[in-house]
Structure formats: C-alpha cells, structure tokens
Design a protein around this nucleic acid. Structure first.
Lengths: 213, 213
DNA sequence: GACCTTCTCACCTACGTGTTAAGC
DNA sequence: TCGCTTAACACGTAGGTGAGAAGG
C-alpha cells in the first residue's frame, strides 16, 4: 500500500470521479523539482519549503471529511550528491511505518474544505525519533520521499485508519532529505522564494556580514 | 440565563458533583482583582492579561466534550475612574447577546481535556463590531464583565446551543474594560508580569527612551 | 477643559531561515 | 580525509506590549 505508484493528482482507491485535488504553487514546485528538491531535516524539526498547499473540489458539501498527509519512500536507495548530481549510494534504511499528519481542521464539511486553501505548512520534518512527536514526520536523511494526501469521508478522526481512503500524490513534490543543502541551485531557490530567508538575498540588499569569532 | 449570579467555580446547571474547574494563576488574578482588574479593548482586538487558563477534572474520560468561554455583564452600569477609584457613571449600554468562544480543541474526550491546561489566551477583546469576528469578543468600554466557562457533553460543536451546559465562573476574573489604563497600580502589575511588556520594566533594565518627534 | 478613543511607535516574545564552525 | 550531522548565530517574519500624541 505504502509503495503504490504516484498518480499525478488522480485518485487511486475509491473510484469517485468527482473528487479532485489541485496542488498550489505549482510553478514554484516545478522549479525546485527541476533542480532536484531538497528538504532539510533537523532534530527539532524543519518546515517544508515550498509549503504543501492544496485546493479540494468535488466533495459532498454536507458530508464530513478528514484530510491527512503522509510522506512515503519512493525507493529503497540511499543517495549522495557528488560532482554536481545525485547518485545512488547503497541500500536505504528500511521503510518506517508512516504516521498520518491529520489536518487540524479535521473533521469538517466538504463545503468548508473546498472554500479555502488547505495548508500543511505546520508539518515539520525530523531525523530524530524524539519525545515530542506532535506535528512531526520522521524521515531518514539522504533518502527520497513522496508526500501524499488522503481524504476520508468520516466524522471521527480516531477511526480514520479503518475507513476507505482517497489518496493523491504529485510527482513534482518528490524530494530528497538532507541535513545541509547539497545543490547550490536549490539553496538559491530557497533563499529567493522563502520570506524567512530574505536576510540572505543579495538583490539590492546589503550583503550578509561574516561571522566574527 | 446570561445574568445568572457567579458561583466561584461551583457548577450551576447540570448537577454533576464530579465535574470541577480550577482557575490557573490564581495568585496573579487575585493581585489584579484586589487592584481592580482592567482589560484593554481595541478595534483590532486585545488579548486578556492574565491569560484565562483552567484545569478540568471529574469528566468522563471516554465521553466527548466541547469547552467554551463567554463574557457577560456583571451589572447595568457604566463606570468611570475618578480620584483614584472606580465609581458608577450612569446607565450602561444594553447587554449584547454574547457569542461563545469555542475552544479550538473542541470536541475532545474528557481524558484529553483533563490531561493539560486549557488556555483561552487567543481570545481577543474588541470594542468594534468589525468584519473579522473570528476569535473576538465584542464588549463596551467602561463596563464591568465576568468571563465564564461552559462545558457541554457533545460531539458536535454546531449544536452546542441546544445541549445542557455546565457553567463555571470565578469572581476574581471580573474586570472593567478600558481603552487606556486608568489605575497606575494596574499598569504596574501588567508591566511586571506580562512578558510582552518587559520593555517597560525599570528593575535594573535601562529606562525607556522618550519619543522623538 | 475633561474625558475617552485611536493611531503610531519603540521594544519585546516567539520562531522560521541559511551560514558557519565544530563534532563525529 | 571525507562525508554527514549538530549547535550557535545573525537576520528575517509575525505579532503582543504600554507610552505618547493626536483626535473627537
């Protein structure tokens, strides 16, 4: 189940031709994907950038839904960045059973979900199985991953595992985990587009001061 | 119903001798109460300080509950601060039908509610009936108010009004609304205890620079 | 004038960034 | 040495404070 192929936003399990998921910031994701997206993992947890945001449509307006995200392995390899490109560097760690990140608005009506952008920007990626698991997804560094969306028609978040799912995945959101950026092109894209990294931009702003020690 | 007397944390409606609510930061509340608590109201909304935080006990661990706050008039007067004390300054505005502020964790199991401090620190007090009502409670300035807690045994937040409530209120959380602090003693308590006002403390830290204009 | 409200401001808290140096 | 990880850091975003001046 977890290793099922991606499907570019088409549904996988329940045949429900109406339900659709649309990825936001698609141009931005494509730029990163073209360069080879990297996501930082830290002990305390690091947000994804670009943020994972979607638009839902085709839901039953009155029914209650839970919306979840998980992140699954794309393959069984460990990767390394050498001579300017990513190559396979041996066998990967065993796939961990992934926890679902339940969107905090769950459960809500179809009408509510479709009325606004659904954002998973609070998800944090970590490489450490610490005590504080809340909102964190544990991944192995230097591995390749695919984020996915699951939609369940239910009122009860605690029973989400027993219900039938609609699962969506976008190939342009695949990324490799790192503890420090490997590809300078990726670093530049992050700095140029993430508001929190504005301090590192050099377009007109004064350059960064070097550390004094 | 809205003008029912306060009850110092004892239950009012449903006789359920097990259910209890305990006010956090009681000493701090008492200090403010002794001075005559004032809470700022602004157009954009201002948080309460001290923050309204409670501990719940005696709930059925497996049942689902919604927890809400509202703020009701204590009397029909308008107040003024003159010669160092609060006095009645005429007839107050008509009591507005208060909206409940539903705690964002609602609905949750009794076990969940009892496992942690329940905080309403995100509630904002406003004197303006603007467009953005989310999380704001509209009050009239220079009036006296009592915050209250309501607990409903239900799974569905949308039907909370039709269910039977358990209501709790703590006399030491009564306050008067202001647009600017009237009693210097209150100002001092706010500055000394609210971390966001640390810039105005004078115990060892350098004094505040005067405005330059 | 007296009283209350509104707005801007300097100064905080809290936390999201990539960098850098040190650790393993 | 080399590759990867960690922690401290400067510099942002975002937003909560009372002070003070201006407005009504």
């Amino acid at each position: 189940f977890y290793d099922s192929p991606v499907n570019n936003g088409q549904l996988m399990e329940l045949p429900d031709p109406k339900m659709q998921v649309q990825l936001c910031d698609r141009e931005l994701w494509d730029q990163f994907s073209k360069a080879g997206t990297e996501m930082i993992v830290t002990k305390t947890g690091r947000r994804m950038f670009p943020g994972y945001r979607i638009k839902l449509s085709g839901l039953d307006r009155d029914a209650k839904y839970c919306v979840m995200m998980d992140i699954v392995n794309v393959d069984d390899h460990r990767y390394k960045f050498q001579h300017g490109e990513w190559t396979i560097a041996g066998r990967g760690e065993p796939h961990l059973p992934q926890r679902f990140f339940l969107h905090p608005d769950s459960p809500a009506t179809g009408a509510k979900w479709m009325s606004e952008i659904v954002s998973f920007h609070k998800v944090k990626l970590t490489n450490s199985v610490g005590r504080d698991v809340d909102g964190k997804i544990v991944l192995n560094s230097m591995h390749r991953y695919q984020p996915r969306i699951h939609i369940v028609r239910t009122n009860d978040p605690t029973r989400v595992h027993m219900q039938r799912l609609c699962t969506f995945a976008f190939p342009q959101t695949v990324f490799i985990t790192v503890t420090a950026y490997q590809n300078p092109e990726v670093t530049k894209l992050k700095i140029d587009n993430n508001p929190f990294a504005k301090g590192f931009r050099e377009d007109g702003a004064r350059a960064k001061k070097p550390r004094t020690s």
